[in-house]
Design a protein around this nucleic acid. Structure first.
Length: 274
DNA sequence: AAGACGAAAGTGGTTGA
DNA sequence: TCAACAACTTTCGTCTT
């Protein structure tokens, strides 16, 4: 009896935007990118392919002696309550992640971070939603697909401030060492939202590389630097976008773009003619 | 009319005494 | 704990295209 093969997700071979066949997959970011127009096709690849990130949790359940007695008024089985909370957290995590179009590896990383937080009793005094949001924020950074605190907060029921505080606390307690976010990591996403071609992307990355060598990026907000580089690159490649357009997708103001723009063009000797 | 420019005052977060 | 500080925002008037 021939076993019917499970249907595989249809493979994407053409860009839905410009119909180009030149698609490339950035494994580090978990993003499929069109080389012609720079479109990021995140949601196309979410469920395809093997799970390359091994998921080697988890320590054996030590059911003997749970750490902290929650409260005496609950006669309920502790593990039931814990599992209910975990289920709620994971569904909340999934809701946020799919709302933001984040790839699967990021969700798995976030889930791992969250579990670690639970095991270390970091939830106490904090909302589950806050810890979920902070886990997701950390996971995005760890996977080099950073999202800003504002973006995370917009998909959460928790404010930016609390997410930031919780994130700080968690990285400290869990000893997560996350490098500061590089402006480059924002380029493909912002360019894609601005419908800019891959040419502009490369140019912007090139500018940022130079900027980093000359220490024009340290101490500056990575989104602002990325925005300015993209603005410059868009002009150089004759695909000009206004400061406002770039500012909107990057979540900064025009003023910030102008300041970074001035620094970059002056110190890198870039001539921007009309 | 829309975009770019920059000055000035205000905000929120970090740092160091 | 508080004050100083830098990055960023808000606001607004002016110049350029």
């Amino acid at each position: 009896m021939p076993t019917k093969k499970i249907e595989e997700a249809e493979e994407v071979t053409r860009c839905p935007e410009c119909n180009s066949g030149h698609l490339s997959f950035d494994y580090e970011r978990g993003e499929l990118i069109c080389e012609e127009c720079g479109l990021v096709l995140t949601d196309q690849m979410i469920d395809q392919g093997p799970e390359w990130r091994a998921f080697d949790v988890e320590q054996g359940e030590k059911r003997a002696r749970t750490g902290a007695p929650m409260t005496y008024t609950i006669h309920d089985n502790v593990s039931n309550a814990t599992e209910r909370n975990l289920a709620f957290a994971l569904s909340e995590l999934d809701r946020m992640a799919s709302g933001m179009g984040l790839p699967r590896n990021v969700r798995e990383t976030a889930a791992m971070v969250y579990r670690k937080a639970v095991n270390k009793n970091l939830i106490r005094g904090r909302s589950i939603e806050g810890v979920v949001a902070a886990s997701l924020y950390a996971a995005c950074r760890q996977c080099n697909v950073p999202r800003t605190l504002d973006e995370i907060a917009n998909s959460s029921r928790v404010g930016r401030k609390e997410i930031g505080r919780t994130y700080r606390f968690m990285t400290r307690e869990l000893k997560l060492k996350l490098m500061p976010t590089k402006p480059q990591d924002y380029v493909s996403r912002f360019c894609s939202e601005l419908k800019l071609t891959g040419e502009v992307q490369s140019k912007a990355v090139e500018i940022l590389k130079d900027a980093q060598d000359k220490e024009l990026t340290s101490g500056r907000g990575p989104t602002g630097v990325a925005a300015a580089a993209i603005y410059i690159a868009s002009i150089l490649c004759n695909e000009r976008r206004t400061q406002r357009e770039v500012a909107d997708v990057a979540g900064v103001t025009e003023v910030t773009i102008r300041n970074r723009y001035k620094e970059l063009t002056e110190k890198l000797g870039i001539k921007v003619e009309l």
